[in-house]
């Protein structure tokens, strides 16, 4: 048995499909921090769409397959506050009244973390060596912020980088309007919320918008690009890992 903590990377379905470089960035950041990283290939989705649609039975089935695939690791890390929140906070709710799975789930959930908070809070990382020259602002995604209390962690890491000039936008803790299926079920309201958000992003006068969740990033990038904005959008892990050779999310202006 190695002394390095063995970390199972929960890639998340949006990173898998839309932004593989975030997956590779996460692997690099975890390895640089001294972790032994594994990626179970059978993983699909954390089950949030079912959970938020009120479908408890299918949520439980998906949760069990995630738990089985990942419980052997010392830690389970996801580059998303939303999915990590599902694994850490909501899985125990799913099995709260199921004696067969309750304890096993709680044991699993305790080991689950969002990427930036795992790096700082568990691995004690205070500095990343990548360099990136940009004026950036950071959007605090709701689930990470409120369920997992992620606020300072990505900022500690970003501020340790050479070239990053971080400034805060107005209402950085306000929802971007994504909300998973909300963005298509109530698309008009979702659009109104993200329009307000994109105004704050523009007002911050930055080159680059960062956040820790692909859903929010795709929503904000989609709006900014439709408006012809020059602000580029990336997942925070790409910048922290120095893996910014791919075009930004939604491309350039």
């Amino acid at each position: 048995m190695s002394k390095e903590p063995r970390v199972g990377l929960f890639v998340t379905c949006l990173v898998d499909l839309f932004r593989p470089s975030v997956g590779f960035a996460a692997v690099k950041l975890l390895e640089d921090a001294g972790c032994d990283v594994y990626v179970p290939i059978t993983q699909t989705c954390c089950g949030q769409p079912a959970w938020n649609s009120g479908d408890k039975v299918d949520t439980a089935e998906l949760a069990i397959s995630v738990i089985k695939a990942f419980e052997e690791f010392d830690y389970i890390v996801a580059p998303s506050g939303s999915c990590a929140g599902m694994l850490k906070k909501h899985y125990p709710e799913v099995f709260a009244n199921d004696p067969a799975w309750k304890e096993r789930t709680e044991k699993f959930s305790e080991k689950c973390y969002e990427l930036t908070s795992f790096l700082t809070d568990v691995m004690g990382v205070r500095k990343v060596w990548a360099e990136h020259s940009a004026n950036v602002t950071y959007h605090d995604s709701c689930a990470g912020l409120r369920e997992l209390k992620i606020k300072k962690q990505p900022r500690i890491l970003l501020n340790s980088m050479k070239g990053i000039n971080l400034s805060e936008m107005t209402d950085n803790e306000t929802c971007c309007g994504f909300g998973g299926t909300f963005s298509v079920k109530y698309s008009d309201i979702s659009n109104a919320i993200v329009t307000e958000k994109s105004g704050h992003i523009e007002d911050a006068n930055v080159d680059l918008l960062l956040a820790g969740d692909m859903g929010c990033l795709m929503n904000m990038a989609g709006k900014l690009k439709r408006q012809g904005s020059k602000v580029e959008v990336r997942h925070v892990a790409e910048v922290l890992a120095g893996m910014t050779d791919k075009p930004p999310i939604g491309g350039k202006a």
Binding site: R6, D16, Y38, V39, P40, S187, V194, G222, K225, R226
Partner: peptide, 26 residues
């Protein structure tokens, strides 16, 4: 419902799980 008011970012390349060649299990 999405593209009415927003662009849809498209994948940057092949899915991560199809590209990844590292370790899967202990």
């Amino acid at each position: 419902a999405w593209t009415k008011d927003r662009d849809m970012p498209t994948p940057e390349g092949k899915p991560f799980l199809s590209q990844y060649k590292g370790k899967q299990k202990i």
